[in-house]
């Protein structure tokens, strides 16, 4: 028995903000692209529901996986910007999707939140508590953005992504590591004024060290080298960070997925959004070995290796997983 990602889905708000929408902050398209790789980001309407957006992403992930809502045993949502403080969005999403009374809760671990939620899902399946777990990352970072601060306003976007995590036969056993260090809370935090503050250059330094070091660790534990990665999907905070990590790991550029140019930093939504977009671009195939890495407020971090479906996966409807829009 192993655990794989069985499907992924994405949902983005319609409104697009380009870099030119930030020139009033005394910045420029050239500066933003050069330092971050970001060209545009999405913005959820002030009165819109993040749970609705997240439900769309989750519904698409379910459809992509072929797993029926009734077979989902747990729903876990990583977010720091939920519509309400309690209950968690997971409960509302499960009900909207017709998932019958699952264990459902939210996780808050900054931009690493999705990997924390995914690690929980894997453990739940490995321990026999669940066969299929829906894991979502959803953020409306515009709710905690200081729209007058050029150092952060240009970096952040809204969006939702989701994956279905499933028990499977064959393929690689997932290898994950998570961690945190509360001595560095001041580098990146959201205080009671509800606005995100960060110290960019120090974050860059820590992010590269943490993501590269822990990806090396999970690869070593899995008995793999970096060359075994079919696709490296890191938290999409900044293209420069991802390229620095890639150089440290020795992963060629063509095996690194980037969508930060289109969506900016969507915190815990970033990795599932990237996985869904990679799937749409036909970059995932059954048995593909994925390297995942994230860092964020805490500081918190996580890294993992997991396969995209098992090489011989048969979906519940009897169709081979390879038949669903993936090579």
């Amino acid at each position: 028995m192993t655990v794989t990602l069985a499907g992924a889905g994405a949902a983005l708000p319609e409104r697009v903000l380009s870099n030119h929408d930030f020139v009033h902050l005394d910045t420029s398209d050239e500066w933003i692209v050069q330092r971050t790789g970001i060209r545009e980001r999405r913005r959820l309407a002030a009165d819109a529901s993040l749970a609705e957006l997240a439900t769309d992403a989750c519904g698409r992930a379910l459809a992509d996986s072929g797993v029926a809502p009734r077979d989902i045993h747990q729903v876990v949502v990583a977010t720091s910007t939920a519509d309400r403080i309690s209950p968690g969005m997971a409960v509302e999403i499960a009900t909207r999707l017709g998932i019958d009374r699952p264990a459902a809760f939210d996780v808050s671990a900054g931009c690493s939140g999705f990997l924390y939620a995914l690690d929980h899902a894997i453990a739940a399946i490995e321990s026999g508590r669940a066969d299929h777990v829906l894991v979502c990352g959803a953020e409306a970072l515009s709710r905690i953005t200081d729209h007058t601060d050029r150092n952060t306003a240009v970096l952040l976007g809204d969006g939702a992504g989701a994956v279905v995590v499933s028990r499977a036969e064959g393929g690689l056993r997932p290898s994950f590591v998570l961690g945190s260090d509360g001595t560095r809370i001041d580098l990146l935090h959201v205080q009671q004024d509800k606005l995100l503050r960060m110290r960019g250059r120090e974050i860059f330094e820590s992010a590269v060290d943490l993501m590269a070091g822990h990806t090396e660790l999970v690869l070593e534990r899995a008995g793999l080298g970096a060359e075994a990665l079919d696709l490296f999907v890191a938290h999409q905070a900044n293209a420069r960070i991802i390229h620095a990590v890639r150089r440290r790991l020795g992963v060629p550029a063509e095996r690194v997925f980037l969508n930060v140019d289109k969506v900016a930093n969507t915190s815990s939504a970033s990795i599932p959004l990237a996985l869904a977009h990679a799937g749409e671009q036909q970059l995932l195939h059954p048995g593909a070995v994925l390297g995942l890495a994230a860092f964020g407020a805490g500081l918190s971090w996580g890294a993992g290796v997991i396969t995209w479906r098992s090489p011989d996966a048969v979906r519940p409807d009897g169709e081979l997983s390879a038949g669903r829009g993936v090579r």
Binding site: Q34, R35, R201, F204, E205, V208, D209, R240, A244
Partner: peptide, 11 residues
């Protein structure tokens, strides 16, 4: 060479 290059150089 910008500040992020310099940071990566230091690392």
């Amino acid at each position: 060479v910008d500040s992020l290059h310099v940071t990566e150089l230091g690392q």
